[in-house]
Design a protein around this nucleic acid. Structure first.
Lengths: 340, 340
DNA sequence: CTGTTAGCGCGTTCAC
DNA sequence: GTGAACGCGCTAACAG
């Protein structure tokens, strides 16, 4: 490992000062054409690469942003991370991914602050998290697909209540009256809102709420399987499931089929998120789109705007996207036999 | 945004020099207990956070590694990225993810070098990529799930040829004789080796190679669908598919079922990678495990060892993991009717 | 148009 | 045990 080339070497070779080299490399106007060529030649022959760390120190800008999510292996986060990384790259930002449990959030944010990131994107957070106060950090923060109970925080998410309504409306229209609801922990705003939307929709259609038809808790195939199994062994079993994330919905599909029921003939299933695999004909999951592409794109662009000092969000700090229902093959009209 | 606290402020408040503050924070021995307490108190009241950028500049170490992959939204990469990020975090490294097309690889590596990363992990690369020469970069590079045609490059991957053998052996044992093969571009070492393994296995079992049964090319559902459709409309259609990635295998499942065939009764399918979703009972894909957990863990650990100056790889720079077959429900004995 | 001087925030000699 | 001085690699301010 030979010593790294610095501006000094380049300056010496080109017979100019370090400042001039710096100017050439940063495309300053008013530089003598020939000296510019000299410098460029020197850079090339020495294979000089500017040190971004030194640059960051003096400019107080690292061109790095942090992305904090719960679980990169979750398709929704993986798919949005892809968009975020790509968009950030277009604006010449790198992204440090932190796959952090929510409990560590404060610690992770502090670490990122020490690394002097220019901004942070958060994809999952508990609803009542107290410490996310914009003013407490020296960089902007944008939440996506989640929110906290504070008005002064930037966030972008789909209208989850409306999404739930679309799901229930679809199932109701198909004749379903007993609609089971499955979701992750209600401490997260996303699941909470989807649950509230479910409740409100039941009321809207004059259906009664049955607590036994609801599962909400930590993601675990075994737990879910047991719950579904229990439900399907009842005489008055539900005719359909509304699952508030596709990832869990696919597990529900598995659990249902393991009980020997046919989807959608015996049991209908609606998911939420529209992750890529849901459109695969082998699954062909009816689901609610959370507009992930628009969400991720807007989140990263807004963050960059905030970093560079101009906001694109208009009146409100909170943006709600409009969900749509995507009807595929896991839902159908209620089985005639069951109607009797 | 008030000015950031530096060592200077802390030193003043504690009534000591900046050097002493630095010593306290870096846990030097031989420091007067009381002055240490003073400094710590000052740090706390001022809310001082050491600037890792300044630290990186002087120590010439950023505690950051780069992870270059093709597509984070691909489950295999998402799942390994999760492990890599988590393990890196345990060793106090952050990871910058670059979702880079292979063509950009050199540019991305250069960018990472300018950012002074301590090391780089690469998850996908073309087989004959010429520029990955360890000596050309000032940081160590470890490849996982891929390799290049050079001996002096660290890499860790599963024994792909053996993996293919396990797949063919399994299908052969079930009575299948016409085995279609589907894979991504053969320019990638992983797909190439799996293909070679397929060929060698055919020969081993005395089966003839039929070029028409092979698809290899860029990942695209539509192309794949057309290919499968064409194959299944033939009179002498294959009775099974060996697909060299689970991600594509799931698409093949979709394509087959869209043609009205039952899996596995009419057509068997074997995948490769054992991504998480493959074990879901609704898919229950028979597949070859590429030992992704061990692969990712070893790759990041080896990289860190290389960074910190001690290698764990023993004789060879190249490690091969032992694949296993995981038999689930997409394969079964050949349909009796077809045997006639 | 170009060079000189100073300093970003910190860790590391070397004295005391 | 502790402090003063120097430098990591680069750019900003000020001359000229």
């Amino acid at each position: 490992m030979e010593k790294r080339i610095t501006v000094k070497e380049v300056a010496n070779l080109a017979g100019v000062s370090r400042t001039t080299v710096s100017r050439v490399l940063n495309n300053f106007p008013y530089i003598n054409h020939s000296t510019k060529q000299n410098v460029l030649a020197a850079v090339k022959t020495l294979g000089y690469e500017p040190d971004q760390i030194a640059r960051s120190l003096i400019k107080q800008k690292t061109r790095t942003i942090g992305l904090i999510i719960d679980d990169v292996s979750n398709s929704f986060f993986a798919e949005t991370a892809k968009i975020i990384i790509k968009t950030a790259r277009q604006y010449n930002y790198d992204v440090i991914i932190n796959d952090a449990k929510k409990e560590n959030l404060d610690k992770v944010l502090k670490k990122l602050q020490e690394k002097r990131v220019c901004g942070v994107l958060i994809g999952s957070i508990v609803r009542n998290h107290s410490n996310i106060i914009m003013e407490e950090f020296e960089f902007p923060i944008v939440l996506y697909n989640c929110d906290v109970d504070r008005s002064n925080v930037y966030s972008i998410m789909v209208d989850n209540k409306k999404g739930s309504f679309l799901a229930v409306e679809h199932l109701y229209g198909l004749g379903h009256r007993k609609i089971a609801f499955i979701s992750g922990p209600l401490t997260q705003s996303t699941f909470y809102e989807r649950f509230i939307g479910y409740l409100q929709s039941l009321e809207h259609f004059g259906l009664i709420y049955d607590q036994d038809l609801v599962y909400s808790g930590q993601y675990s195939y075994d737990h879910l399987f047991e719950f579904v199994k229990g439900l399907l062994s009842r005489i008055d079993k539900p005719t359909c499931f509304f699952v508030s994330s596709d990832q869990m919905a696919i597990d529900v599909l598995g659990s249902i089929s393991q009980q020997g029921f046919d989807i959608p003939k015996d049991i209908s299933v609606v998911g939420f998120d529209d992750i890529n695999i849901s459109s695969n004909p082998y699954l062909s999951l009816t689901t609610i789109s959370n507009e992930k592409t628009e969400m991720a794109t807007n989140a990263i662009k807004e963050l960059i705007n905030l970093i560079e000092g101009q906001s694109v969000f208009t009146k409100s700090l909170k943006i709600k996207l409009d969900p749509t229902i995507i009807v595929r093959n896991t839902t159908c009209g209620i089985n005639a036999q069951d109607s009797f």
